[in-house]
Design a protein around this nucleic acid. Structure first.
Length: 560
RNA sequence: GGCCCCGUCGUCUAGUCAGGUCUAGGACACCGCCCUUUCACGGCGAUAACGCGGGUUCGAAUCCCGCCGGGGUCACCA
């Protein structure tokens, strides 16, 4: 075990109370890039001091999402990613990385503060404090803890606490003003009296976030703290605590925030809203999803304040055939975005390398990243641009890579595709779809035509009319001839199909559209599909003939 | 409301620290044209911004002040 700590240590410290938010991912990415660009170390710490809300499942998901993004942590919980690479570990002997396992460490420093008179026991109940807060609000006064506990003699406070009386510990905030040096925002000055004596240890004996963060950052050798601007107001507290504890103050960098295009927060509520609107527009009377009762659905649709769980929303979305807005990293993963593209796009929100460079990978980011180039103003998340980047990345991929990665995605998200197609069919589909698809999910949706039985095709009546029935059923008779021509083909690979179609068109002096469109409608039900040669070749000769037969029969039944 | 932060095309941004080379550059979106067997891809082109008002200066997107606008935060959550 090396004792020499790196000169740059950054950390990402999520609380395992839910999913990895896309904004959190960007913070992690910046931390990672800063450390790696400087030859330092990136540390992952799990802030699970909220006993009620933390879960191991959440931790696991967060680790998995970070690994998927390619944001590898050098110190932290052990994890093996899908490629078999092992992440985490404790090369500098600073474990454990779960705050819930560090209670004795916190208490040791807590005691120092207590002994020095920089912290004190307080006995107000949450209800009492709440009442005080409300009273202050009613008088339009700013609420600050009134230090009532300090009226009690120090010995008595200690004795009551030692005697088992329920209490919290508060930090006695110095009366002086506090200056925060921020690498992004510059100097931020907080006047004396703005920060009140905040709680550093809760009734349950766990430290609050403020205390745990300060102790851990010191003990884990963290040199740079990069976090969202929502934490800016906390920083004076942390700086004051560091001073009282005799700790260094790390370099701070508060990044701008990420919002929806309309300026609202990107949150689970967006999913709620999208699903609720879909339900309303479909005027649902009964719940289509097993996880939601009819009553639950009715209440939820009618009351904007009520929320369903993410799992319920996803269940509902699946039945309604709608997409929910992506908020968490796993949403983007499920939606078929490439992790390197998500990172690239994220890096552009609030940071820029300059020189009109926009497309880059994480290695470039690490090399070029600097705190001074982080912007100050908040950004709006533009899915169009992300989508455009993803489309470009897919288009730049080799056929082999696309095939391999889309297959891996399908195995996780859309197993019926890999299950119902042969390897050869899948590869042909991949080749056909790659240039016209924006995400893996998009590809999966475009692959639908190849998965259903001939009997299950739903014909788009508009397409049938336009392509087959118009002009005295010209398209229909072409189709009948095509059935014979294609049925007679000796081999059915894309090249043979294409030359067969070309010959057919030439013979009749048709444009290719007059041939391809009737075929599209016949084999997919709609006018849209990949190039016709690949579309047909994926299906195979027998299936194509069967689908044409069925289409002819369908049209006949329409006419009689 | 108190405190704090921010303000360049619709959006992400370059340019601001060291004022002139900025008649403000790039990207995404939008619009138009071309390509085309559908849908896409692709190619070309166009529209589009320094929040407002005062200063300082020969000269301001860049410096100063005020205003307006947006955001964050005010938990025994993190």
């Amino acid at each position: 075990m090396s004792t020499e700590r790196p000169s740059v240590v950054t950390r990402f410290a999520p609380s395992p109370t839910g999913h990895l938010h896309i904004g959190g991912a960007r913070t992690a990415l910046f931390c990672w890039a800063l450390a790696h660009g400087a030859g330092g170390s990136f540390l992952l710490r799990i802030e699970d001091t909220d006993q009620a809300r933390s879960s191991e499942d959440s931790t696991r998901r967060i680790l998995s999402d970070l690994a998927w993004l390619g944001i590898a942590w050098d110190q932290g919980p052990n994890f093996t990613d899908e490629a078999g690479r092992s992440l985490g570990g404790d090369p500098f002997g600073v474990a454990p990385f779960n705050q819930s396992e560090r209670l004795s460490i916190y208490n040791e420093h807590m005691d120092r503060l207590l002994a020095a008179g920089d912290a004190y026991h307080a006995f107000e109940t949450p209800e009492e404090l709440d009442a005080q807060r409300k009273a202050a609000l009613a008088e339009k006064k700013q609420y600050r803890y009134d230090r009532a506990a300090l009226e009690i003699l120090a010995e008595e406070r200690a004795a009551r606490a030692a005697g088992g009386e329920e209490h919290v510990i508060r930090f006695r905030v110095p009366d002086a003003g506090i200056t925060v040096q921020d690498s992004v925002l510059g100097e931020v000055n907080i006047k004396p009296g703005e920060v009140d004596d905040f709680i550093i240890r809760k009734r349950d004996g766990f430290p609050t976030y403020h205390f745990a963060v300060v102790v851990d950052d010191e003990l884990m050798g963290v040199t740079h703290v990069v976090r969202g601007q929502e934490h800016l107001a906390n920083t004076p507290r942390h700086v004051a605590l560091q001073k009282a504890l005799g700790f260094r103050t790390p370099v701070y960098a508060h990044t701008p925030l990420i919002f929806n295009p309309d300026g609202s927060k990107m949150s689970k509520r967006d999913k709620d809203k999208a699903a609720r609107e879909a339900c309303k527009s479909k005027a649902l009377s009964a719940s289509p999803a097993a996880s939601i009762s009819d009553e639950e659905l009715t209440t939820w649709v009618g009351d904007k304040r009520s929320q369903l769980s993410i799992e319920q929303l996803e269940d509902l979305a699946e039945h309604l055939h709608i997409g929910l807005p992506e908020i968490n990293v796993e949403d983007f993963r499920a939606a078929g975005y490439l992790p390197e593209v998500v990172c690239n796009y994220l890096a552009l929100l609030g940071w820029s390398p300059g020189d009109d460079i926009e497309k880059f990978d994480n290695a470039f980011l690490a090399e070029r990243f600097s705190l001074s180039r982080i912007g100050k103003s908040n950004a709006k998340f533009d899915r169009n641009k992300l989508l455009a980047f993803n489309t470009d990345a897919l288009a730049d991929m080799s056929d082999e890579d696309f095939d391999r990665r889309w297959r891996a995605w399908c195995e996780a998200e859309s197993p019926e595709i890999v299950g119902n197609l042969s390897e050869g069919q899948f590869s042909m589909l991949a080749r056909a779809l790659r240039p016209r698809v924006k995400t893996f999910l998009d590809a999966a949706e475009n692959a639908a035509f190849s998965l259903i039985d001939a009997g299950a095709i739903e014909f788009d009546e508009k397409a049938v009319n336009k392509v087959l029935l118009k002009n005295d059923c010209a398209g229909l008779s072409t189709l009948a001839e095509l059935r014979d021509a294609l049925g007679a083909l000796g081999s059915f690979d894309p090249e043979s199909v294409q030359s067969g179609i070309n010959a057919f068109a030439e013979e009749r002096e048709f444009g290719l559209g007059k041939v391809a469109q009737p075929l599209r409608v016949a084999v997919t039900g709609s006018t849209v599909s990949p190039p016709i040669d690949l579309t047909l070749a994926v299906l195979g000769q027998d299936e194509v003939v069967a689908r044409i037969e069925r289409c002819l029969a369908h049209c006949e039944s329409l006419q009689s």
